[in-house]
């Protein structure tokens, strides 16, 4: 099996009762980007550190191209690593950071100083920081630091790149822009990567496949659309942002099924926006609990009988007070079915 293989991996911290990672098996094909998605404390970072060789395995195996790397120390695995806050070396300038991994080994750009500086320039250009070689690390913005960290990790052409929440320390608009850039860089370099995040939008933007973890166990691995349309369990669905669950047999499910068409599962999961406030529409009715605004659009918390409190979308500028009863239209594309 080519690429990265995880076989029943267990990571245990001394003194902790439950293992941080509990029997995870996964496969990442060459050139593929896999996101490890889960709430904080679910063991995704521990799993990543175990793959890097920074945490000893309590059980199972990590393989590359079918051969175990358990006995290979961190620096000989050829797995690159990018941390949340970059961990740039403050006593070296940007060029010195990117060149750090180039000083050993036998590849062509490593053999000479000019080869190395050529490689450094090439990578800085790739991450959009051409000409930054002599800049001090302290003068960089948060986004620039992460770009340098990415260039540094990619410079020795690692066979696998591990990214531990690389965008989490940045503010939202920058994070969304960098997620797109990150995806472009990974695809352009054909890098095999494992990307840890707690943000599903980020995971969906960057990864080819997403693995959802909770309490150290793997819940589901799928492509982003598959994951979204067919979450394997209520736990996964809830983490993806589905906020209400209605059994198919429930009377409240009837108008929902009318909108989605027949579904195979036994439970319907409703994402935000499954209801749209439409005056005069009588597919369903709900009582307004409160109104918030996100990016100009109104979001109305409504209590729908048989469904519970959900977030419905509403046209811009609409006004309601708590206690108003409003008519709701149903958007079938925001409803998934669970087994």
């Amino acid at each position: 099996m080519n690429g990265l293989g995880l076989h029943d991996v267990v990571v245990r911290y001394p003194g902790a009762t439950a293992p941080a990672v509990d029997g995870v098996s996964l496969h990442v094909a060459p050139g593929e980007v896999l996101a490890l998605l889960g709430p904080s404390g679910c063991g995704k970072s521990s799993l990543l550190r175990a793959v890097a060789g920074l945490e000893p395995l309590a059980g199972g195996a990590v393989t590359w191209d079918g051969a175990s790397v358990v006995d290979v120390p961190v620096h000989r695995r050829g797995f690159g690593l990018v941390f949340q806050d970059g961990q740039l070396f403050t006593h070296r300038d940007v060029g010195g950071n990117v060149a750090y991994g180039l000083s050993s080994g036998g590849l062509s750009w490593r053999s000479s100083a000019s080869g190395r500086s050529h490689r450094v320039a090439e990578l800085l250009e790739l991450v959009g920081l051409a000409g930054y070689e002599r800049r001090e690390v302290a003068t960089l913005s948060g986004g620039e630091r992460q770009r340098v960290a990415l260039a540094r990790a990619l410079a020795p052409a690692p066979r696998l790149l591990l990214l531990d929440e690389p965008l989490s320390a940045l503010d939202r608009s920058l994070r969304e822009r960098l997620a797109v850039d990150l995806r472009a860089v990974l695809v352009a370099t054909g890098t095999t990567a494992v990307f840890v995040t707690h943000d599903q939008d980020e995971a969906f933007a960057v990864a080819d496949r997403v693995a959802v973890l909770a309490d150290g166990r793997l819940l589901q691995v799928d492509t982003p659309p598959e994951l979204w349309l067919r979450p394997a369990s209520r736990e996964v669905a809830r983490f993806l942002g589905y906020e209400a669950f209605v059994p198919v047999g429930d009377p409240a499910a009837a108008p929902l099924l009318a909108a989605t068409g027949p579904r195979s599962g036994s439970v319907l999961a409703l994402a935000e926006g499954a209801f749209v406030v439409t005056p005069g529409d009588t597919a369903a009715k709900g009582t307004v609990l409160g109104v918030t605004s996100r990016r100009g659009r109104s979001e109305v918390r409504v209590d729908v009988p048989g469904v519970g409190p959900v977030t419905a979308l509403a046209p811009v500028g609409a006004r309601w007070d708590a206690g108003d009863v409003v008519g709701l239209r149903i958007d079938g594309s925001a409803i998934a079915s669970l087994d």
Partner: peptide, 24 residues
């Protein structure tokens, strides 16, 4: 994590100490 980053870039434990931890 700074020295771990160095290790992941191919530095041996001794080199990571010498080039990252010691300067810090």
């Amino acid at each position: 994590r700074a020295s771990q980053a160095a290790r992941a870039l191919g530095a041996s434990p001794w080199r990571a100490f010498r080039t990252v931890t010691l300067p810090a």
